[in-house]
Amino acid sequence: MTNRSLKPYLEALPYALLLVLIVGVPIATLITISFWETDGLLLYPAFSFENYRELFTSSLTLTLYLDTIKFTLLTLFFSMIIGFTCSYFLVFFVKSLKVQIALFLLCTVPFWTSATIRMISWVPFLGKEGVFNSAVQGIGLTDTPLEFLLFSDFAVVLTYVHLFTLFMIVPIFNSMSKISPSVIEAARDAGANDFDILINIIIPLTKTGIALGSIFIVALVMGDFFVVRIMSGGQSASVVSAMKNEIDQLYYPQAAAAAVLLIAMVLIFVSLILRVVDIRTELAR
């Protein structure tokens, strides 16, 4: 009968083992290498803080982090507004459950398609001879094409919002659809109008969803190098895109140190958000 108590351990074992091997050990490797030295060709085991010293004394580090945080906050802001508004519409204004689920799925389907393709799909829309500029010039709003549209910080943020907003919609929609209808009826009974209900009931009860979505967006934007590289046309950089250059030049220990710092930053951000919301119970609801 003791196998009963052993059961969860055996069941979790393959998953746990895989995760340790493909996540735990690689991160430990990064941390180790970040203390090593290199001559640009080979790695030399050491215990040197040189890589970190370089990292923290370089003015570039701060600039990169500020840029990345700027992108993160802008993306968070827009995706929250869009995610909340769309979920609010779906949950509280769409009467038929079937239509509600269908529209929700419509918002989530792009998640299962290629992010690269979705990113480059903005090129023919925003380009100098793109759909948007043709339209604007066609109706005579401007004579010269708007150049800031593509290969700019604007394009970077637009692409982030386009790629990642569904990470906000899903958890917010989930939180909202769990709000008991009787809570809203009770508020209305107490004399609240739609706006009061939105401010006093719906937003507070949706906080966990917003927090959960924020975790994804922080992680995805801070970890990105590809969007920023392509959509800024090489004009902007992020923490990771700078790191990618070091990797391309085989400066692995330096890159590892930068990676450890970024991972630490992301984990700090995420754990700050986790303090607000217990995702495990949230998911189990």
Binding site: V23, P26, I27, T29, L30, I215, F216, V218, A219, M222, G223, D224, F225, V240, M243, K244, I247, Y252, A255, A256, A259, L262, I263, V266, L267, V270
Partner: peptide, 10 residues
């Protein structure tokens, strides 16, 4: 949440 390319690096 770990940036993907960094995990790849590791």
């Amino acid at each position: 949440v770990v940036p993907g390319i960094l995990l790849g690096l590791g």
